[in-house]
Design a binder for these strands. Structure first.
Lengths: 251, 251
DNA sequence: TAGGATACCTACCGATGAGTATGATCCCAA
DNA sequence: TTGGGATCATACTCATCGGTAGGTATCCTA
């Protein structure tokens, strides 16, 4: 049980050139934050694998080769750990929104850019925590906090949809229902995606968005539009389905 | 704590005319099944409200105004209770598949019919159990069983998509990814739908399917196609969004 | 080199909740 | 009326797990 010195000082001795006073203190802080992040990431991976309730803090600690009190040294509660995982994922999506702000492209393209990052976030190790966290597991205060963040993203999507309908880049539709459908499809990635998958989150998102863009009813006469289904960002068309046995309803 | 005789004999004395031998025995059986179903439904509702892990069997028992051993009299374990809820929901979807078998309509219409029932099932009290059950909560055997059922549904959807592409009623697409997108959007209903909602599950499903059918990229010249978004089965167009504050990421 | 902060451990507590042992009560059939 | 099955309650067991108490080793600063 003595893993004591197996992880002596993970990755801290790099900026050793600056020998100012408090340097070591700052380095210590850096090390602290690094370790804390490692705790959060380990938790996210365990939650992802086994679910929140089936993951004990002993599990997380074991994964890091430390003991439970060590985890508590970096985090105040299991709930807060879940919250941190949630935040880490949501931050990727919020960043995507910030990126598009100020762009001049049609709203549909801006929306697509956001949703591609959205899909990537869902396929990341934090996807589970974002999509599958039950707010019944959380204290009322934290539940409110998370709901607010979710609502912010939701309304960001709806706004882009409305703008798209106005600028003509999106077919007239109900923004709320459309946002639900888009987010639902993308959130579901967190249910079936695992890292050994052959497609990246971005590729999956691009594939989904192509479906949403074209629709399933056959388009008029020019069949060449099928080619449009290929994603933009250099991701090759995922026409070749992965071999893994997954079902939409399955994890 | 003594609710003993508050539910004396729920709903059994109906076929009292037939005084055959074993009649009371059969009636007893009927009563047993009725009570058992009531237990399953109560469990589904509690799981739906608070999640599987936050629902104790004492909660379910209290809801039925009985005690825990009574629940165990009708069910062998909590896991089995969850499984029964899952089955009840899935059965609705399988019935939808059976209904379409033998129909002559284009595959897209058959698919749409199935998915409308799918959406209804997701909005039902069993939606949570179908969509949100983590198979890590289940024993390996039961997990396999559930996965098989999910896979059956998944492949049914994929097959209809393939048929649609072949008969020309569906725009060429990757069946696997399309099935994921469709199922994801519909499964997500179980996350945000509550019974007090102004829309029925069928209406929501119809609204989603309209989006999937038309696509978000503007269609050619005739703008009248917007009217097509209205669902078929007498459900009025859900253009008026419900007032509830829900976010796609939120429950 | 003392003193304090940092980082981590061993060993525990307390609550929760799944599942059960045991027995009481009621109804039906012989 | 008597026995047996069906139904349900009281009162437990037992394992798990979140969280803590209290102590120890290490390193930095003064």
């Amino acid at each position: 049980m003595n893993h004591r010195r197996s992880t002596p000082a993970p990755a801290a001795r790099q900026s050793a050139g600056k020998a100012s006073p408090w340097a070591s203190s700052r380095e210590r802080q850096r090390g602290h934050k690094l370790k804390r992040d490692a705790v959060v990431r380990a938790a996210a991976r365990e939650f992802n694998r086994k679910g929140y309730h089936n993951t004990s803090l002993d599990d997380i600690a074991a994964r890091l080769e430390v003991t439970k009190p060590t985890v508590y040294y970096y985090v105040t509660s299991k709930e807060q750990l879940l919250f941190q995982c949630f935040l880490a994922g949501v931050e990727q999506i919020r960043a995507a929104f910030r990126d598009t702000r100020g762009q001049q492209a049609p709203a549909r393209e801006r929306l697509w850019a956001v949703l591609r990052h959205y899909g990537e976030a869902m396929a990341s190790e934090f996807g589970w925590c974002m999509a599958r966290t039950e707010d019944q597991d959380l204290s009322p205060a934290m539940s409110r906090h998370i709901k607010a963040l979710k609502s912010e993203i939701d309304h960001g999507i709806r706004r882009l949809i409305r703008e798209g309908v106005q600028d003509g880049s999106i077919h007239p539709c109900d923004p709320k229902m459309t946002a639900f459908a888009l987010a639902g499809a993308l959130n579901w990635i967190a249910y079936w995606y695992r890292e050994d998958q052959s497609l990246t989150g971005g590729q999956i998102a691009a594939s989904f968005l192509a479906i949403f863009e074209t629709g399933l009813r056959p388009r008029g006469n020019r069949g060449a539009q099928i080619a449009r289904r290929a994603p933009r960002r250099g991701a090759r068309t995922p026409a070749r389905p992965a071999t893994r046995r997954t079902a939409p309803l399955a994890r």
